[in-house]
Design a protein around this nucleic acid. Structure first.
Length: 715
DNA sequence: AGAGCCGGTA
């Protein structure tokens, strides 16, 4: 929709020259205040009118150059396509006659007028972006680029040059276009032309050429400004050259530039991504002490930096500071916080933040759900994670493959077979993603852990068909699977395959072999020991020694060395397995040596505890063999205490834990209960305390006296 | 004419 001054006959003679001097491009730039000032001072009846499309073309054609012709053409077409905007205008009350319909009166200060100006500006902008697109597509020659630009007329406007360059993407042609504008116009602020050209290089992620252009600008003596620096800094950041970002940031003072809040925000982000967290935080400190305005994006950047660096309380502190400063967090802030709490493995905090967020009226978006799913999934909050999943499905939000995999890994960890199968089916139906090696790996793990050999093998074949090679995680699961099914030869075959593939067994894999040994009959153990020796000679040595003739002290020494050489997170698993193997082979004395070693190395802590009213045995996270060994040790300690004339407390208790162990519906608690029964132990499951077996001083006393120690574990 | 919230797993 175009607007124009009404015909000169409506104006007083004072206004005539003004009217004639207004070119279409000036009309586009009129501001409300300017317009009303002129209206007040120069004429009594200055009216704005709409022209009909044909009138627009006729009345303007005399002033305008090719560019403006096409501009106004497109405006006219738009008004034809959307005539309702005319009828909505203030003058159109529905009763107007046909002749007044094409000349609708608009108050220049009205919102309607500003809407119209916006529309005209939009149309011109649209035209200039088309020029940018043509420039991107034409040959990278001076001839072709200049040819396209000649459409802007002999004297292009600096403002138009900025818009054209700003919307370009082709860096070669942008350089030529810049050259053209430098030839054709005397830029008042040449730095702006350079700044927008720098942005073109940033779009194509070409830091080197951006830097060359900037150097050229400086050589010409053009003074850079904050925009120049924030552009080159963000370009360096995008191109993963954080050191370059720092380098240019530090050059700012020598060009008389003081970083402002935008530049600081960019630098906080650049330092954060460069891993220079200290610098990022010290800029934040400066921003705080110097009372700069810190916007929400920077706050979220800070929370992200803290979250990535593992300082989760730091992340929460930023949030508290925001509150203290009266800055209202938005959805992005909440999402970043939720993500940090997920990384922190603090699902309960994610939960309460989510609650707070929804109470404040924010509705979750995809990012929110993704953060929650990661937080709950990683922490094995199965019900919460599955609820988020269901809610996403209900809302039609698509998961990506990583989110699916997070859910499946959680199901694998918890033994949620049915859920996993359903989720896998859902993933296969999904339009947006397909299973990858992580997906197959989780499913193979699930089937392996419940000993479903044919299903696990079937999934392995599907994985191979999909073009994925089995990796160490898949082979670890398969070995576990064959071990559970007592298919020792398949375990060995799979192990050979791993070595053939050039994969180096890791601590976890060896732990799995050890675990298979705990389930394997004595006659077959030799085959597995052979694998273990090839996988980890130190471990193989300790296992052989444990089953051989050496005395306990030698075993203790070598096992100590082994434990100092494996990663912390598998030490307990190794110790549990080694003790289980001993217990299975009735090597009680060695089991005791290993348990004692485990306690002195703090692999096991606080197994026994004493308070004035109760002595307890804590078996949580011990394997069955280790738990029985610990019970044996405890009983002999109790007996010793009695012999020394020490009084037993009124209550004695054994804590096996809740027994919600994965892939076992009974867990240690269930298995342990039957063992206690076999031992005629007077411990009874406490009805109000899950996982606790209790007895009284009197019952314990007579039972201890009736038992001789060595046969306990043998049961 | 400037930053950038968009997520990445055993």
């Amino acid at each position: 929709m175009a607007f124009h001054l009404s015909s000169p006959s409506n104006l007083c003679h004072d206004c005539q020259p003004l009217c004639n001097s207004i070119s279409p491009s000036h009309i586009l730039q009129l501001t409300p205040s300017l317009f009303s000032w002129r209206a007040r001072n120069f004429c009594h009846s200055l009216n704005l009118t709409f022209l009909s499309p044909s009138q627009t073309r006729n009345s303007l054609s005399s002033h305008i150059r090719p560019l403006q012709v096409s501009l106004h053409d497109s405006v006219a077409q738009e008004s034809q396509a959307n005539p309702s905007t005319m009828q909505e205008s203030p003058a159109s009350d529905g009763k107007t006659n046909s002749s007044s319909k094409s000349y609708i009166w608009v108050n220049p200060t009205s919102p309607r007028a500003s809407q119209l100006r916006q529309k005209s500006y939009d149309a011109r902008y649209k035209y200039l972006t088309k020029v940018s697109q043509s420039l991107d597509l034409c040959n990278p020659t001076e001839e072709d680029v200049f040819q396209v630009l000649s459409g802007l007329g002999e004297n292009p406007l600096e403002q138009d040059a900025v818009i054209v360059l700003n919307n370009m993407e082709n860096p070669d042609n942008a350089l030529l276009a810049l050259k053209y504008f430098q030839l054709k116009l005397k830029p008042k602020r040449e730095v702006i032309l350079y700044n927008v050209t720098l942005k073109v290089f940033r779009k194509s992620r070409n830091f080197n050429r951006a830097e060359v252009l900037l150097e050229e600008m400086l050589k010409k003596g053009i003074k850079p400004d904050n925009v120049t620096f924030s552009t080159i800094i963000s370009c360096a950041r995008i191109c993963s050259l954080p050191n370059k970002a720092v380098e240019w940031f530090e050059k700012m003072p020598q060009f008389g530039c003081n970083p402002d809040d935008v530049t600081y925000a960019a630098m906080i982000d650049a330092y954060g991504r460069a891993g220079n967290i200290d610098m990022a935080l010290s800029l934040y400190d400066r921003a705080r002490t110097e009372k700069w305005r810190i916007d929400l994006v920077t706050f979220s950047t800070l929370i992200r930096i803290y979250g990535m660096s593992g300082n989760f309380d730091g992340a929460l502190n930023v949030y508290e500071e925001m509150k203290a400063l009266g800055v209202k967090p938005n959805l992005v802030i909440y999402n970043t916080l939720l993500d940090a709490m997920g990384r922190a493995k603090r699902p309960w905090q994610a939960k309460s933040l989510y609650k707070e967020m929804t109470t404040k009226g924010y509705s979750p978006n995809w990012t929110t759900y993704a953060a929650l799913l990661r937080a709950y999934g990683r922490a094995r909050y199965a019900e919460d994670a599955l609820n988020v999943y269901r809610e996403m499905k209900e809302k039609g939000l698509e998961l990506n493959v990583v989110l699916y995999n997070t859910l499946l890994a959680m199901c694998a960890d918890l033994g949620y077979t049915d859920e996993a199968v359903q989720i896998f089916e859902d993933l296969k139906r999904s339009q947006t993603c397909e299973p990858d090696s992580w997906t197959f790996s989780s499913l193979i793990t699930i089937y392996s852990c419940c000993g479903k050999v044919s299903e696990a093998e079937g999934m392995l074949n599907k994985m191979l068909e999909a073009g994925f090679e089995p990796n160490i995680y898949v082979l670890t699961s398969l070995i576990q699977c064959y071990g559970k099914a007592n298919r020792t030869d398949d375990v060995v075959r799979t192990f050979d395959r791993l070595l053939e593939m050039g994969i180096t067994p890791d601590d976890r894999f060896c732990g799995c072999l050890l675990n298979v040994m705990t389930q394997t009959p004595k006659e077959e153990l030799g085959k597995l020991i052979g694998c273990i020796e090839r996988a980890n000679s130190k471990l193989g040595f300790v296992v052989k020694q444990m089953l051989g003739e050496e005395n306990g002290e030698v075993l203790r020494k070598d096992a100590t060395e082994l434990f100092s050489n494996i990663s912390m997170d598998v030490r307990k698993a190794y110790c549990n397995c080694l003790i289980d193997i001993c217990v299975n082979l009735n090597l009680l004395e060695r089991a005791c040596v290993l348990l004692d070693l485990g306690m002195s190395l703090e692999i096991y802590t606080d197994i026994q505890s004493k308070s004035p009213t109760q002595w307890s045995l804590h078996l949580k996270s011990l394997s069955l063999g280790a738990a029985l060994t610990a019970l044996h040790v405890w009983m002999s300690d109790l007996r010793k205490a009695q012999e020394n004339g020490e009084e037993l407390p009124p209550l004695l208790g054994i804590n096996t834990g809740h027994g919600k162990h994965k892939y076992s519906d009974k867990g240690l608690a269930g298995v342990f209960a039957s063992h206690l029964k076999e031992l005629n132990a007077p411990f009874h499951e406490a009805p109000d305390k899950a996982g606790w077996f209790l007895t009284t001083k009197v019952a314990a006393k007579s039972w201890l006296e009736s038992r001789s120690s060595p046969d306990i574990v043998a049961a």
